[in-house]
Every structure is written in C-alpha cells, then in structure tokens.
Design a protein around this nucleic acid. Structure first.
Lengths: 151, 151
DNA sequence: GCTTGAAACTTTAAGCTTGAAATAAGTGCT
DNA sequence: AGCACTTATTTCAAGCTTAAAGTTTCAAGC
C-alpha cells in the first residue's frame, strides 16, 4: 500500500473516513431515536445552544453546525414548536434573531447528552490516549491547512 | 489535554471528526455542483456502480453506501430519468432489481471522478505517507472493533 | 436624508433521507 | 398444495438540506 501514489491513498483515506463517519452517525441516529425519540439534527442544534448557554444568533448557529441558514431556521422552528427552544428579536440590531434553549429544552438535552456521550465512549472504546493523540495531531494538521486556504 | 478523561477525549475527537467530514463534504458538494452540475448523493451512487462495473442489486447498493433502501430507489430513479443509469429485473430471483451505469453515465462519471479525485488530493495535500499510515491504523482498529460488535 | 450595498433571516422549490408500510417473490415446513 | 416466514424492492409521509430569491435592517458615502 505504501507504494501506492499519494493521490490514491488520500482518496481512499477520505472514503474510509466518510464511511466511518456515516456508520457512526447511523448508529447514533438509531440510538437517539429509540432511546430519546429525537433526531440527530435536533440533537446537534440543542448541543450548540447548550454549549453557549445563552442567547445565540441564528447565523452563528448555522456557521457553527456548518449548515445553511434555511436549515437552521427549519430545525429551530420544530424545536420551538415542541417547547424546547425559543427565539427572540435581538436587542440592538433588529435583523438579528436570538435562539436559546428553554428550561425544558435544557433538561431534555442534558439527559440525551449523557447517554450520547456514553454511547460515543462505547463506540470508540478501542481508542486509547495514544491513538487519540495521533488523531488529534492529524486533525489539527488538516484544520490548520484549510484555515490557511479559506477562513 | 492528556489528563482529560478518556470519555471526554473520545467525544471531542468524534465531534472534530464529524466537523472535518462535514466541511469536506460541503466543499466537495459545492465543487461538484459548480463544476459538474451534480450532487454528492448522485456522485456516490455512480461511484458505487462504476466500481463494480456491471449490474448491481439495489440492496447491495444501499448497503454499500450505508443508506436506506428507499433512498437508493429515489436517487437511482433520478439518475435513470437523466439517462445515466438503468434498472433491469434480475434473471433468477424475480424480486431483485439490477442497476448499472449507461454508457453515457460511465462517461459522465469518469470526468467527474477525475476532478473529484484531484480535489480530494488537494484538500488532503497536507497528509503525507506518514500521517496516512497512522490514520489507516486507527481506522482499521475502529472498523475491526465494530465488526466484532455488529456484522 | 438618500442611495447603494451588505448583512441577518425567512421562505420556497427541489432534492435527499429515513422508517414504516405495502408488494411481490422466494424458502421451508407440514 | 398451503402456510408462515423471510427477503428484495418500492411507496409514502415526515423531516432534513440546500441554493436561490425575498424581506427587513443596518452601514457608508454622498
């Protein structure tokens, strides 16, 4: 394999990375569905909102999650309908919309997050500090390079 | 960071992996859209069909791509409508449907694939043999473990 | 103050995706 | 043959996602 040219190895590595990510997402989707009756996009949005622990601009939300503006609007709309999040107009800039979790949303998310964390720990239980170090270095290298190219 | 407990490190690593995958997919989606007027799901399906280079069962296709059956049906239907793929009933087992690329589909895909490969090569140009080796080992370890758990 | 342009969101249409239900066809048991 | 069970695929409803167009608001230059 080491005599295969770099372009081919990079392509194969990307495909394997993509497959691992999909398989893991499928597993977590199913887990969240049967255990908490929720979906991955909802969970992701709630995680971002919980993380900042306060009002967050819609645009920051979509930037954070790497999804389109319209997508953020749609998912937040559903969360709001279920009483898990709420939107309010921004104070200064009247174009801005601020989202945050409701108390109910926070409670619901924290229960989901605990199980989610445990499941991720289980799924990656074969990775110890050594592999995590190696992976951290590689991810760091990729992120650094693409920061240089884009933003 | 090394004094952070393993569960936390695994969760953070998963999140970073997910972000890298999403960023890369977003980039490739945009690339295929502007340069070839196609989408990632269509490209993925065509790649799978090109890979086997011959008739493929719908169920094998969805298994390969880690998507639902209904999804495979929908994407193939669109490819068929565009004359890029064609379906035919299986010979022996009459439940089976076999898909394959048309000549046009093969030609179209090969042009897309060449550019896609070059773009992936560019996106991961910071990874040399050394990092690819490390990543291969890690991915192998994860795949091995989940094979033991599931299928 | 007006205009021009940019920014923050929402809306819309089209496509993607899932999970479940529905069809249809094969397999095995009696 | 008849019956239950499994497998292969499609259909369907609901939700997710994007890109593009539309609305409202802000900022800068005149």
């Amino acid at each position: 394999m080491r005599d295969t040219d770099l372009a081919t190895r990079r392509l194969r590595t990307w495909i394997r990375l993509l497959r691992l990510t999909r398989a893991t997402e499928n597993h977590l989707r199913e887990y969240l569905r049967v255990k908490h009756g929720t979906t991955l996009p909802r969970f992701d949005v709630m995680a971002a909102l919980h993380r900042v622990d306060g009002p967050m601009k819609m645009s920051d939300l979509s930037r954070q999650l790497l999804v389109s503006n319209g997508n953020a609007t749609a998912v937040v709309e559903r969360l709001e309908k279920e009483g898990l999040a709420q939107r309010a107009p921004g104070e200064g800039d009247r174009r801005v919309v601020l989202v945050e979790l409701t108390d109910k949303g926070r409670a619901v998310f924290e229960a989901q997050a605990a199980d989610h964390r445990a499941e991720v720990d289980r799924l990656f239980s074969m990775l110890e500090h050594e592999e995590l170090d190696a992976l951290r270095d590689i991810l760091h290298r990729v992120e650094e390079a693409s920061d240089g190219q884009n933003g």
